[in-house]
Design a protein around this nucleic acid. Structure first.
Lengths: 348, 348
DNA sequence: TTGAAAGCGTTACCAA
DNA sequence: TTGGTAACGCTTTCAA
């Protein structure tokens, strides 16, 4: 941000207080009695040039003594590129499923010598955010859909990103797409309920707006699966809150539903408890289905029917990113990578 | 690329090929027919210099047309400092409590105009990691304890970090400390169980080694609370796994415990279900206490006694970081910031 | 009001 | 085997 650059030099002019200035490769060179070039050769193990063993030692020792650490910005400025893969930090607390997936991906990218960085620019929307990311000149950007549009992708590519990969429901022009179609989750639940003879299906929709990107498609998927049948779909908003659940359970019978898709396992647990406290039998009076196949679903009584969501391994994704970086001209790939399968247990 | 510089000035007609090289402020200057300095003045709203309105417009338009985005590395290289706050990305899937805390902190730091970056260097340990972080020349580093030692702190400070803040059980020389003493969690549980007359206390310890930094102190806390009393403490390892829990429940009675602290609410749920399936009454035969005060504890029957953990607001922490950055010479502060309080429900 | 030039820390080319 | 030097993109004096 421009005004930021104006603010700083005034207020915090840096007269090194109790802090010696940061050692540079020139300092190392001086202490070792060699040139900066030699320092660079030694510290980077440049194979094109041979440096004598005594010199190497002197350089290493000098670097050690000064606590020299190379300056990444200077290096990538000089090199004209970096190995940074940027992903925006999630702005909502994210479940164990997604969290594990991200970790695996991060690990796999590290193995391929990329530096993974999660950028926490929480105020920024869409193209604003893309601009902020572009300032860091990442070699690749991995962004959840929703925020990023074709303009954002274009900004990133023009600023040197060799690969832009979106995770989300739809393809974005110019970007590789990892399609995660949560409608598929809803569809599988719809089909399951239909097959088991349920006809008046409720779908819980969390009131937290941050979850809409998941909840809307899941709802829509149920609608699709039941379209053209005798079954009806009722949207039921619910906050993740004991009181709200109890209220809902109190007027549950008036809704006249024989089954409900509870968005995910945690909401399912919340609702199921409230229904049971109200004396409503699960699954006899109302079937309950969750999603995400968390441990807790197996621990409930009745055991929770849920949707197992299969994500690809982090390694595969890391390889996609790597391929895209190496072949930036290639046509963007689109991968459908969300497998949804109902795990039938006792609650439906 | 140089040859581009040669091409343009002659024709000055920009027929944009597929993938041009990244536009710089020099390109903007050329297109707008001004100097690079002027571009910088305009784009940064430098108040010290007056630029005519027509010139401003030309510059802005040229920047827009080229899709110019400033190069953060070059900027901070020149400026000699950045506003980047670095924190290592967590290497284990982390619970909702910690996750919410981090999000809040991130948001608060953004409000103070810091750029928050989570660095995902998963292979690195201790001082290795500190070196990698130092390469990015962050103005502040916020790191969970465990990994970082005094040497790491020193590396970071020598490389220009004006504040190093650790989150963890102990103070590290030279760094500000946000002390999160999980022993306190164990102590409060120990005191609670003792007061309610339990004498043979088991403590569940997750087998996942990533959780040791939390589980060890919690166990130790229980030991402390029960030291010098007639009560005994038994360490009970358990994997987060249905089968393991069932096995444990199968030999539960042979352990001769009348109460168990289950590490956290999720393990408590796992164990409680296994005990109940085995016909072991909770709390009559064995009391169960969790920790973290998650929603799910309220939904269990019997309702789960747990430990509510109070973390400070992200805003306060952000302000501590900001203060530390502005006054790097100041004595490192240490804040005790984990409040633990037992929430008594029905399972104990 | 604008422009020329220096310099931030690196690395790579070309000489010595 | 080593050293000088230019260049990466940007901001900021100092001059015009």
């Amino acid at each position: 941000m421009p005004y930021l650059m104006v603010q700083i030099p005034k207020t915090s002019a840096p007269p090194p207080p109790a802090q010696r200035s940061v050692p540079t490769s020139a300092d190392v060179a001086r202490l070792a009695g060699v040139s900066r070039a030699t320092v660079s050769y030694v510290l980077n193990n440049t194979s094109a040039v041979r440096i004598s063993e005594p010199t190497r030692r002197r350089v290493h020792q000098a670097a050690e003594e000064l606590g020299y650490v190379p300056h990444a910005a200077a290096r990538s400025l000089r090199a004209g590129h970096s190995r940074m893969v940027l992903m925006p930090a999630p702005d909502v607390p994210v479940g164990p499923l997604y969290s594990r997936f991200f970790n695996e991906l991060q690990w796999a990218l590290s193995r391929l010598e990329y530096t993974v960085v999660q950028y926490g620019g929480l105020g920024l929307r869409g193209d604003e955010a893309a601009r902020a990311w572009a300032e860091l000149r990442p070699v690749a950007v991995l962004a959840p859909g929703g925020g990023l549009g074709p303009r954002g992708v274009s900004v990133l590519k023009r600023s040197g990103a060799r690969a832009v990969v979106t995770l989300g429901p739809e393809r974005i022009e110019g970007a590789h797409a990892l399609l995660m179609d949560h409608q598929e989750v809803g569809r599988s639940v719809g089909a399951h309920l239909l097959a088991r003879g349920y006809r008046r299906v409720g779908v819980l929709v969390p009131e937290d707006p941050g979850l809409e990107i998941f909840s809307r498609p899941r709802l829509e998927g149920v609608r699709q699966a039941l379209a053209g049948t005798a079954a009806t779909v009722t949207e039921v908003p619910l906050a993740y809150d004991e009181k709200a659940a109890a209220d809902l359970a109190g007027r549950w019978r008036s809704l006249g539903l024989d089954a409900v898709f509870a968005y995910n396992d945690e909401f399912a647990m919340l609702l199921m408890r409230a229904l049971q406290d109200e004396g409503i039998g699960v699954p006899d009076e109302t079937a309950v289905v969750g999603a995400d196949d968390l441990m807790l679903g197996r621990l409930l009584r009745p055991r929770l029917t849920t949707v197992h969501i299969e994500l690809p391994s982090g390694r595969e994704l890391a390889e996609l990113v790597d391929r895209a970086v190496r072949e930036p001209a290639a046509e963007p790939e689109a991968h459908e990578l969300l497998g949804a399968e109902v795990v039938h247990r006792e609650s439906s």
